[in-house]
Amino acid sequence: MKILVPVKRVIDYNLKPRVKADGSGVDLTNIKMSMNPFDEIAVEEAIRLREKGAASEIVAVSIGPAKAQETLRTALAMGADRAILVETDDQVEPLAVARILKAIADEEAPGMVLMGKQAIDDDCNQTGQMLAALMGRPQGTFASLVAIEGDHVSVTREVDGGLETVKLALPAVVTTDLRLNEPRYASLPNIMKAKKKPLDVKSPADYGVDTTPRLTTLKVEEPPVRQAGEVVGSVDELVTKLKAMGAVA
């Protein structure tokens, strides 16, 4: 079984994003960019499935600028077999990303698409579900456990009420949650090897997908800043203040 793993290049999760003064967006100049953390978990899970013999080939895909090659090289260094960059400098929305991924899935015929539940820049949490709809295939979102059972996959999902398990016919789209695994670090020899692994460069037009945005961003602002309050000296003072504020009875 082939596994397709879409990976997005995003601001490193350790950094605090700054809004541009002109309100046009978030300033990403000279900002460290990394693979979306949920996508790292997806790459790791694909590798583990291959290690268990449940998967044969792992293809990483990214839609983004030329620099997204670095993200793909990271996936290759972790253990993906080959990569496809769909290069564009435009901001591509989840719906268009899903359309491109659908076209790639048509060509590659993966048994599973394993991807992040959410990109930590747009916080959309929708691409995987959209892809599953476009493919007419089932979806296992927010996965904390993935087990292949013949021509089905059992997915345990992190839901508001606890943990839900669903059984999906393959091919299926699975999106990762934080508890699925802990991604490995790429070793130096693997980073060197990854440089020689195949990486195809394509364009959205190659897949016949129009990436014109459906949403226009009118402005991007800082959220209202919350002022730090006061530091109290003791539990007694804390209780007094809480009562004075009416926060506790």
Binding site: E93, P94, L95, A98, D122, D123, C124, N125, Q126, T127, G128, Q129, M130, L131, A132, A133, L134, Q139, T141, F142, R157, E158, V159, D160, P213, R214, L215
Partner: peptide, 23 residues
């Protein structure tokens, strides 16, 4: 925007060819 809504709504959006406005 609960886990149920987040699971279902984008699938509806794709079926309608609409870009979802999340959360």
């Amino acid at each position: 925007a609960t886990t149920t809504g987040k699971n279902i709504a984008p699938r509806v959006a794709a079926l309608l060819d609409v870009m979802q406005v999340s959360e």
